[in-house]
Amino acid sequence: MNFQRLQSLWSLAGRPSCPPLLVMASRMQMATLTCLSLLLLWSQMPGAQGQKFQFGPCQAKGVVPQKLWEAFWAVKDTMQAQDNITSVRLLRQEVLQNVSAAESCYLVHTLLEFYLKTVFKNYHNRTVEVRTLKSFSTLANNFVLIMSQLQPSQENEMFAIRDSAHRRFLLFRRAFKQLDMEAALTKALGEVDVLLTWMQKFYKF
């Protein structure tokens, strides 16, 4: 992509309009790289610096929770109406309740990575069918932006904290894998509001 094309993308609505992340493999890496570069540039603009997620020692700037909520609300009714297994919850209290600040960095990084690599990736074809691709792309793009800025510590003294956060994530993943894949994807997407509500506790102005 040449510089003039980059400038053209940058000028749209004050924030880059990125191609969907979840595309066929031959173009996915380049599209994702371009999108992420533009989003990271945008996050460094004046006005974006005062808004950030602070997950313990980790932080992510340039993300507006309202945009995430708007994207979810656009698909909420569709996703939750398709969830017929009301007795199961993936993001239950044992996963998200009383998470320490130190744990939060590891946990959110792992959850967002799972949503990107498993949930959004496997649900991509359905988003085209039900015409919700734009909303899911907005969520995915912002999840990438947040995750790319988080740098969980790998120091030995942080092992107990990493282990605690990992155990929480395993509870979520175990519940996900106990369901049929289609049902699990639907439920995970229908619970994005639970994830966003928890994440917003760590949002600083």
Rank of each mutant, 00 (worst) to 15 (best):
N2C: 09
R5L: 12
L6I: 00
L9P: 00
L12V: 15
G14M: 02
G14W: 04
R15V: 13
C18H: 04
A25W: 10
S26D: 06
Q29N: 12
M30T: 06
T32Y: 11
C35D: 04
S37T: 09
L39D: 06
L40I: 07
W42T: 03
Q44M: 09
Q44S: 09
G47H: 01
A48R: 05
G50L: 02
F53D: 01
Q59R: 07
Q59S: 15
Q59H: 14
V63A: 01
V63T: 14
P65K: 03
P65Y: 02
W69Y: 11
E70D: 06
K76V: 00
D77F: 05
A81Y: 05
A81G: 13
I85D: 15
Q93T: 11
E94H: 14
E94C: 09
Q97W: 14
Y106Q: 10
V108D: 04
K117T: 11
V119S: 04
V119N: 07
H124T: 11
N125G: 09
R126E: 13
T127I: 04
R131Y: 11
T132E: 13
T132L: 15
L133A: 10
K134A: 14
V144T: 05
L145K: 07
I146P: 10
I146E: 06
M147F: 01
Q149R: 10
L150M: 13
P152S: 11
M158V: 05
R162N: 01
D163F: 11
H166C: 03
R167W: 06
R167K: 15
R168W: 08
R173G: 00
K177W: 07
K177M: 07
L179K: 13
M181P: 02
K187P: 01
K187F: 03
K187Q: 14
E191K: 12
L195F: 12
L196V: 02
T197V: 04
Q200P: 02
K204D: 09
